[in-house]
Structures are given as C-alpha cells and as structure tokens.
Design a protein around this nucleic acid. Structure first.
Length: 437
RNA sequence: GCCGCCGUAGCUCAGCGUGGUAGAGCGGCUGGCUGUUAACCAGUCGGUCGUCGGUUCGAGUCCGACCGGCGGCGCCA
C-alpha cells in the first residue's frame, strides 16, 4: 500500500490540521459521515483527535479511490493517504484530497444512529456503546478526562496522598435505606456509598488524603441529577477545621474549573457552552437565610428539615458563582458531623451549590473526633454499634480535629457542560432504570 | 416510596371521544447529481397497535390486570 517515492507520514487529524498545504499524510480513523454527489465523494473522518473532510474527485482521484469512497459504509475503519489543502467549505478549514484509501474494518449497514434516531434519548442510551462516538458525548468525555487530571494535579501539588477504599463494605456511611446489598460468602455486605470513613483512618497515616472512585446509591431517585453509580472525589485532612475545609473546596473547584475551561475550550464550543471563570471566595449563605428566602417565595419547610429541591433551585438561580450553604441543622445531617460549640443544634458542615439552578455538587464538614461524643451520637441515632466499632476505635488512638468533603464528578460536569441530565456525563450511565449497555 | 403522564413503522407522533382489518413526517433502501456540511431530486420498502384476559358479530379504539418507560417529589454527590 505504501506509495512509491512518497514522504507520507502517519499523523493524527489534530496534527495534520496545522500542517502546510501540499503535505502528504496518512490518517487512520472512522467514517463519521459521507456524502456521494456523483463525481464528488466526501467523507468526514474521525480519528479521536479531531475531524477532517476527505475528498475524492472524478478525474483527479483514481477510479479505485472513487469506488471505495462511494461504497464505504458509515463508521467503517479506514486508512487513507493524500494531500492536504485548505478549503473554507470544509469543517476545520482543511481537507485531504485522497490518493489512496483502504477499508480496514467494514461497518455493517445501516449505522443505527441517524438524524431521526438522535431524537430519541432512550434509543441513544440503549445504543450507548455506539452513540458515544458522537461529537457531543465525546466532547463531554474529553472535558471529564481533563477534569479528572486537574483534580489529581491539584491534590498532588498540595501534598495529598491518593488512596483507594474498598467498594465492598459492611456498614453504611449515609442512611441505611440507600445501600445496594448482596451476599458475600454468606454474609450481608453492601456497595460503598463513600470512602469517607476509610479516609478518616488514613489521615492518621498520611495527614491529607484523597480518593476518586465509584460510589453507589440505591436511592430510587428519578431526577436529572442522580446516578446510582457515580464517581466521587473525596478529600480528608487531619487538623483541618470546617473553615479550612471550605477554603480547600474553593481552591479545588476554582483550580479544576478554570483549568478545564482553558484546556477544553474547543469542546465547550462544540457543546455551545459559554463558561465564565470561577472566582474565590465563594459566597456563603446560612441555612436560616435560605429558609427565609424560600418563605418569601412561598416555599415553606420546617426548621431542621433538609432544604427542598425547589428552594435549593430558587437560591441556586440567584447566583452566578458556586456558593456554600452553611450551618445545617444536625437533624438534616448524618451522625458523624461535629456541631458548633455555641449551638449544638447546628453542624459545622456546608453544601457546595452550583449556580444557574444546577444545585448541590459537594458536601463537606468537620467530623466528630471525640470518642464519647461519637459514641453518644451513634446511640442516639439508633445505629448498630457493632458496624461502627472500628470507626469509633479510631477515636481512642490520637484522632485530632479533622474535616473533609465529597464532590460528585458528574454533578460538576453537568453544571460545567450545562446538561439537562446527568446521564450524559457518564460513558455508560447507571440510573434507576438502566444498567445496560 | 409518592403524584402525574405515556406505550401504534427504525425514530417522533396522529388515529381512540362516537368500535368496522393502519396514517404522516423523518429515517432506511435503489437510482441520479462536480462542493457535500441537518444536502437535494425521483422511486420504493416498512406495523403481532407493550402483554394477557374480558365485553362485542367485530377492539389500535371500551373494561381489567400486568409489564415497560417518561416527568416531578422525597433522598442525595
């Protein structure tokens, strides 16, 4: 197949877009789209780095090339050689005049995804193994990849140690009703909801740790912000107060969001998303203030109850930057939260809320480090003491004040990409009604 | 778990009120076209009306049960 006397170099589409006209290159990729208009044949080639248009012209291209370009099916894998030229009519302003094309793996016809079937979300998710090749979903995944790298960089630059916690656990971190349970050699175990307890053990070894791993929630939530399996980034720091913890979240989110916005500009353009820089410090609103604001808008809820979605959305729409809701009542929080010295009904915890109505993306707080306080809290919450024995045990051996947070990767992405539904942020989303493909 | 809505062609949906053997647009396929980009033009294929049962001479249409999905709430990252 190699052309005699040529200086054909194998490059990616992205690389060849910045090469000079007249360069001879070899590309490998997939037929994203094609159109045959008689004596002209066009193929939109995708290789994972970018897209470029291939052109065949009767008279200029050989009969063989014309035949292959007309016959090739959508999504076939091809290797192609030809000459680059600029043309304003082509996507990305460049096209490849094909001199030589070979089909490496022919795709069956018809390709199931067309301009009619893209109207059906359920069809696209039933065929997610194929539909992820599309421009929108791949842009979201590239942004996701960058976000994850930025998160790792952030924590490593600050001396955090990356740890992984087990996915198979014997006790709940959150409420017991939301666990996936299964048989483990005759014992009842669960899929983890959070790495937090394991991080709390690890901080006494490493000082500051973070995790990034799947979390599972059996919540029967049919909302555009819930997955049953999602990736959570959690961080825990010894000797940190809730004040330190909120500052860390601010630094983390500004670092990650601004890096992603800068590095994945093209993908955000593809999605039509204009994003503004995230700035520190984030505004802080107390739970009581949220409740007052909600009541002024006719949304009533008892003090001590969690903030209803409608109220959270209302407040979220009032901001253009992420913000904290602080001073949650203990009754709306898990047992391990530490309370204020001056008011034992109020926890040292905060939710981090994305603006524009997107809502909660992270929760963090200071944990109880005192043995007797935690023991009393487990008892008054009617939790099985035996399940939390090791967690409690940590408080016997030099547990200092400490704080941490958990942030949902898909929730952040949904906000950054301005997506209607969180399932678009996952390559193979798991929701209450979907575990396939 | 709760409230509401929907299952008819590959996709989106009309038809159901007033029962009489099934429609549209898009897509697919075939052919045409020297600049396609959501192409265009001509032709053509396409249905166990979610499942089971009931009423009826006759059910996509009426009744019941079940299954599946969607939107929202609660809960949460």
């Amino acid at each position: 197949m190699r052309m005699q006397g040529s200086t054909t170099t194998r490059v990616t589409v992205e690389e060849c877009l910045s090469m000079q006209d007249g360069s001879t290159v070899e590309l490998r990729g997939w037929v994203a789209n094609k159109s045959d208009i008689g004596s002209l044949a066009f193929i939109l080639l995708r290789d994972g780095s970018n897209y470029i248009q291939l052109v065949g012209k009767k008279g200029t291209s050989s009969d063989d090339v014309m035949r292959v370009m007309k016959d090739v099916s959508i999504e076939s894998a091809v290797v192609v050689r030809g000459t680059l030229r600029s043309d304003a009519r082509a996507l990305n302003g460049k096209e490849l005049l094909v001199r030589d094309i070979e089909v490496i793996a022919r795709a069956e016809e018809p390709w199931p995804i067309n301009k009619s079937t893209v109207r059906s979300a359920s069809f696209l998710y039933d065929n997610r193994h194929l539909s992820i090749r599309g421009m929108k979903s791949s842009s979201i995944m590239r942004i996701r990849s960058e976000l994850i790298k930025a998160a790792f960089d952030f924590f490593y630059e600050r001396g955090f140690t990356f740890i992984t916690a087990p996915s198979i656990v014997s006790a709940a971190v959150e409420g017991g009703a939301t666990l996936f349970e299964f048989d483990y050699f005759g014992k009842r175990v669960y899929l983890t909801q959070s790495a937090q307890f394991y991080e709390e053990a690890a901080i006494c070894s490493f000082g500051r740790v973070f995790t990034m791993q799947p979390a599972f929630r059996a919540e029967k939530s049919k909302t555009p912000k819930h997955l049953t399996e999602f990736v959570m980034i959690e961080a825990e720091v010894a000797f940190n107060t809730q004040e330190d913890n909120m500052r860390l979240q601010e630094e983390f989110l500004t670092y990650v969001c601004n890096r992603v916005a800068e590095k994945r500009r093209r993908e955000f353009d593809t999605l039509g998303r204009k994003i503004r820089p995230v700035e520190r410090p984030f505004p802080r609103v107390r739970y009581d203030e949220v409740r007052d604001t909600a009541m002024k808008h006719g949304i009533e809820f008892e003090w001590g109850e969690d903030i209803p979605t409608e109220a959270e959305r209302l407040v979220s729409r009032m901001f253009s930057q992420p913000f904290f809701i602080t001073d949650y009542p203990l009754s709306a929080r898990s047992f391990y939260h530490m309370c204020r010295d001056d008011d034992p009904r109020i926890t040292l915890s905060a939710d981090l809320i994305a603006p524009e109505g997107f809502g909660e993306i992270a929760t963090g707080g200071q944990r109880i480090h005192d043995y007797n306080t935690l023991l009393e809290r487990i008892r008054s919450s009617n939790l099985p003491l035996e399940s939390f024995r090791w967690y409690l045990d940590l408080r016997r051996y030099g547990m200092p004040p400490h704080a941490g947070f958990g942030i949902g990767v898909e929730r952040v992405l949904r906000w950054l990409c301005n997506l209607k539904h969180i399932r678009a942020t996952s390559l193979f989303p798991r929701t209450i009604t979907r575990a396939y493909p």
